[in-house]
Structure formats: C-alpha cells, structure tokens
Amino acid sequence: MTDFLNALTLLGNFLIIPGLTYGSQLALGALGVTLVYGVLRFSNFGHGETMAFGAMVTILVTWGLQSLGISIQPLPTALLAIPVGIAVTVLLTLLIDRFVYRYHRERKANPVIFLIVSIGVMFFLGGLIRFIIGPGDQIFFDGTRFILKAREFKQMTGLDEGLSLKMTQAVTIITAVMIVAAMFWFLNHTRTGKSMRAYSDNENLALLSGINPDRVVMITWILVAALATIAGTLYGLDKSFKPFVYMQLLLPIFASAIVGGVGNPIGAIAGGYVIAFSELILTFAYKKVVLYLGPESMEIESLVQFLGTDYKIAVSFIILVIVLIIKPTGLFSGKTI
C-alpha cells in the first residue's frame, strides 16, 4: 500500500502538478491565438512575442516596485505589476493593429498575407524586446517559494516520496482558472461578448444587425493583449524569462489551439492541457514508479522513458500531425467563438 502511495506521490509531484501548471500557461496562450483566429481570421505568429512583451513590461514594473520596497508577501510582486503590463501591451497591440493590420483588413487581404504580416510583427517585437531588456535570462520572482515543501510532506505522511507545491504553480493554476471563468462569462453573458461571437460566427450577418466591426476588433485585441501578458508573466514566473523561449512556445501553443479546434475557446483550453500532459507523460522517466509498483526484487537498468527529454517539442508536433490526419477540425470542431 505504501509503495502504491509512494508511486502516486511521485507521479503527482513530477507529472500532475507540473502538467496542470504548464497546461494552464498553454491554455491561456492558445486562447489568445484562437480569439485572433475566430475574429480576425488569421494565425497570429506574433503571439509568442506579444506574450514576451507583456512579461517584459511586467518585469520592469516589478523591478520598480521592488526598488520602492512594495511587496505583497507571500505572493510574488509581479502579480501587482500585471495590470500595468496589460495596459502597456493593450496599447501596443492597438497601435500595431492601427498601423499594420488595419490596412490589410480594409483591403480584405488573403489570410496568408496576414500570416506573413504577423511574422513581420513578430520580428519587430522580438527586436524591440531584446533591445529593451536584452536577450539574457531575467529572474523576477520573489515572495515565498514553496507552499508545501517535500520534506514537510514526508514528515506529515511518513512516505518516502515528497510532494511539493511551488507558489508559482499554485498562482498559475488559480489565475488561469479565474481568467478562463471571467473570459467565458464575458463571451456568453455580456452584450459585447455576444457581439464578438456573432461577428466571429457570421461577419456579414453581424454587420447587418448593426454590430460595429471596429469595436469588435478593438475588444479582441484588448482581450488578446491581456491574455498574452498574463500567460507570458505566469510562464516567466514559473520557469524564467528568456526572450527566445517565447518563440519556441509558439509551436505548442498553435498545437493546443488546433488540437482543440481553432477558433473554439473551450477547445483551446482542453488542447493546452492535452499538449502539456502528453509532453510530460511521454518524456517522464517511469523507472522509480515501476520499481515501487513492481515486485520487491525487481531491477531495471533503463529509465523507462518513451522519448528523451530533448524531444519535448516533437510531442506537440506528433499530436498535431495525428489530429490533422484523423480530425483536422480538432477535438471540439468549431470555427466560431
């Protein structure tokens, strides 16, 4: 029985909690991609850099607050800085929309053109971020590191394996749940949210019923900027902030959005967790779990791992390919919000 509990704790510590955290970050990112796709109808390659930009502003504000001695112990100060980060990022996305996307939207350009334009935006933002904060690693986490320490858990339960819960993990999961709930409430119960869904569902019909397209586009960018800033900051708090990492996040985020069904918010969230857990399940070394569950005298040499940790990125791609082959519309097929 203890062996079983030990194995379970081991999985909880290294698989379930990290999976939930990473999944929440991906879900928030994918939600932003899916919103742009649903309303503006293109795949936004600039989303990763928008996340990085939001996180960068938050970091700068956090440093400012820290130097003033303001903190909200035991929570990280960055949470206090997020609203400013969101405000600046909203301003940035609205400016970009005004000067870059609007022109192509008015000409009803092909979605592929939008895609290329978004790549241009990605470079611009990438350069801007590296210019302001540099390409290096930034640590901006403060506050209490652990809510539950592995040692305390061992003493409490008397098990050999410890279960630890980092502050960043708890913050990520709770924030993600709150944001997602607020998002759905907004989309389903407010007039603006409903007009967005109508616009995404059928543009012409929405225009006929008097919905102002410019307003819908503006609200979309505001939501996207907020989601991106929160996702970027949470990711940076949990791992660390490195500008190039956000570009590599683009693939798992797109995979999440497509697996769930592009343009479908529920799908984006489900997709985020599917991708996160698949990555961890396939690259986790099960050696100790097997040792706990197997017979006493069992000995194994290998790590019992499906794929090397280096191939994490391949997992999201494999899942993407499987979905494209079997069900190209995604798990929750849908193209509207």
């Binding site: 293109f42 795949s43 390659f45 979605p111 592929v112 895609l115 590599q248 683009l250 693939l251 797109f254 995979a255 497509i258 090397g308 280096d310 191939y311 990125i313 391949a314 999201s316 791609f317 993407l320 390919v321 494209l324 082959i325 190209p328």
Partner: peptide, 28 residues
C-alpha cells in the same frame, strides 16, 4: 501529404514544427 488540402495556415504551422524537429534531431 499531411498538411496540404487543409486550410492554408496548417501548412505553415506544420512546416514550422517539422523544421524545429529536424534541428533537434540533428543536434541530439
């Protein structure tokens, strides 16, 4: 074979993915 015939962005995302994986493969 996988990505053509679907929506045009899928080819972009699929090629983005495969190129990353080729580089990881070659490095590892």
């Amino acid at each position: 074979k996988i990505a053509l015939g679907l929506r045009s962005d899928y080819l972009a995302i699929a090629t983005l993915g495969i190129s990353e994986i080729i580089i990881f493969f070659i490095k590892n």
